[in-house]
């Protein structure tokens, strides 16, 4: 029962990932692609939590900690570059 709920959650999240990928591949300006990149990193954190639930290993959550800490570094770097800074 709970497994089926996790499957449905993973499928819906995968559809959201595909939407963000479409915006990343198409996006007219550079900032649109950066928004899609930010969304994809958060969707990836959800993927990691789902993988950890499916495998039953708590050690996989450390990767999600690293993601949540470091994923905004690239966004800040490209935003400062677009703003003529850095």
């Amino acid at each position: 029962m709970v497994d089926i709920l996790i499957y449905i959650a993973a499928a819906v999240t995968g559809i959201a990932f595909l939407f963000a990928l479409y915006r990343f591949l198409k996006g007219p300006t550079a900032a649109d692609r950066v928004v899609a990149f930010d969304t994809m990193t958060l969707v990836t954190v959800v993927f990691i939590v789902i993988i950890a639930l499916a495998e039953g290993r708590g050690i996989y959550l450390d990767v999600a900690v690293i993601y949540a800490l470091l994923s905004f570094l690239g966004v800040i770097a490209v935003a400062r570059y677009l703003e003529r800074g850095l």
Binding site: V2, L5, T13, T29
Partner: peptide, 27 residues
């Protein structure tokens, strides 16, 4: 399970808004 489903629904709505919104700030 219900909380995870609602979270996945919000992620789906975010992706839909990312595709359908007209300009950068709405996206």
């Amino acid at each position: 399970g219900i909380l995870m489903l609602s979270g996945a629904a919000f992620l789906f709505l975010a992706g839909l808004g990312l595709v359908r919104m007209p300009d950068l700030f709405n996206r």
